Computed example of a mutant assay.
Amino acid sequence: MIHGILRDKPTRLFISFTAFFVANALIAECIGGKLFSLEKLLGLQPADFTFFGQQHLSFDLTCGVLLWPLEFIMTDIVNEYYGPRAVRRISYTAVALISYAFLMFYLAIYIPSSNYWLTSQTKNGLPNMQVAFNGIFGQGMWIIFASIVAFLVSQIVDVTIFHKIKKYTGEKYVWLRATGSTLVSQLVDSFIVLYIAFKIGQGWSWQKVLAICLMNYIYKFVMAIVLTPVIYLAEARIEKFLGHDTTRKMKRAAMGLEEE
């Protein structure tokens, strides 16, 4: 039985998608504690926007946003070939494993430290490794909860909008359903994270929440447009791997259509 599963190309492809999807989401969560300057990365002067009365806003973003666009691309690809149920399955799997990972991080934080390890990096400028470890892996519970809720809700929004657009357009306008669903779901994701983690968790004003949300969304909006060609490239590679007939049948099955 196992050999039959491994020989089935659509099954192998789905396993690969799921593994990458979960790993990418977990990495994004782990590196999300670091902020970077997009302007510095691009060699530009810092932006100086004013939104909702909040001045001197620039693109100081979490490193997680470097990877999250790939999640939404993967969502659209899986939705295209395997349907909404498959997207929900890998999304729930990712949420469960991310939650498990953070639980293990917190257990590791509270395990008693070795005296040798505590001072092992003093010569490298880290006098207390426990403090450093806590700073990297001990993200606030509000932020963890917010990111998980935002991820799950935005995935559901993405798959729903994608599927509704596809029902109207059929096989045409891949860019419309992929980019359109991503643009909406990214907005939902940005708002939920900021609302839960900082409005509820830290008492930010609505003006600050909306201003930072808009700055984050500007970046995500641009990336959604820029990465649209990746969908077409991925589809071409998938069709080459699976064959035209198989991909046609998978797409129709994903839409809930019976073969003629």
Rank of each mutant, 00 (worst) to 15 (best):
V209A: 04
P46T: 01
W175F: 13
T169H: 07
I15K: 05
R12Y: 08
K208Y: 11
L61G: 06
D60K: 12
S185Y: 11
I212G: 00
Q130C: 08
M74I: 11
V65A: 09
P84S: 07
I200S: 03
L242K: 05
K40I: 04
L194A: 09
N134L: 09
H56W: 10
G83N: 12
S99T: 11
K240G: 00
A94P: 07
L227I: 13
K9H: 05
M104K: 05
F49Q: 01
C63W: 08
I136W: 14
Y173H: 14
V193E: 03
H163E: 09
W117Y: 09
F59V: 10
I238Q: 00
Q45S: 14
I5M: 15
M250Y: 06
L118I: 14
I143N: 04
S37H: 08
R12G: 13
Y92T: 07
I225Y: 09
Y116P: 01
I196Y: 02
V188L: 11
S181F: 10
F14M: 06
A25W: 14
I225V: 15
D245S: 13
V153Y: 13
I231N: 01
Y110F: 14
T182F: 02
A224L: 10
F191C: 03
S114H: 09
Y116G: 02
S114I: 13
I98W: 00
G203E: 05
Y173P: 03
K34Q: 15
G138P: 12
K172T: 15
F59S: 04
Y82S: 03
F133Q: 03
A19I: 14
D48F: 12
W117M: 03
A197N: 04
L187G: 15
G170D: 00
L187T: 13
F133N: 11
W68H: 04
Q155E: 15
P112Y: 01
V157K: 02
S154E: 13
L126S: 11
I144V: 14
I27A: 07
E239F: 00
Y217R: 02
K40F: 09
I136S: 06
A19R: 04
L6M: 11
I218M: 10
M129C: 05
V193G: 02
L66G: 01
M223F: 12
Q207L: 06
F221T: 10
A19H: 10
A19G: 14
A178T: 14
V157G: 06
Y110H: 14
Q121A: 13
Y219T: 09
T179A: 05
H56E: 13
F137A: 04
T160L: 08
V157Y: 12
G125S: 04
V22Q: 08
A101Y: 14
Y232P: 02
M215A: 08
F102R: 07
T228H: 00
L126N: 08
L67T: 15
T228F: 00
L214V: 12
K220Q: 12
L126D: 07
D48R: 09
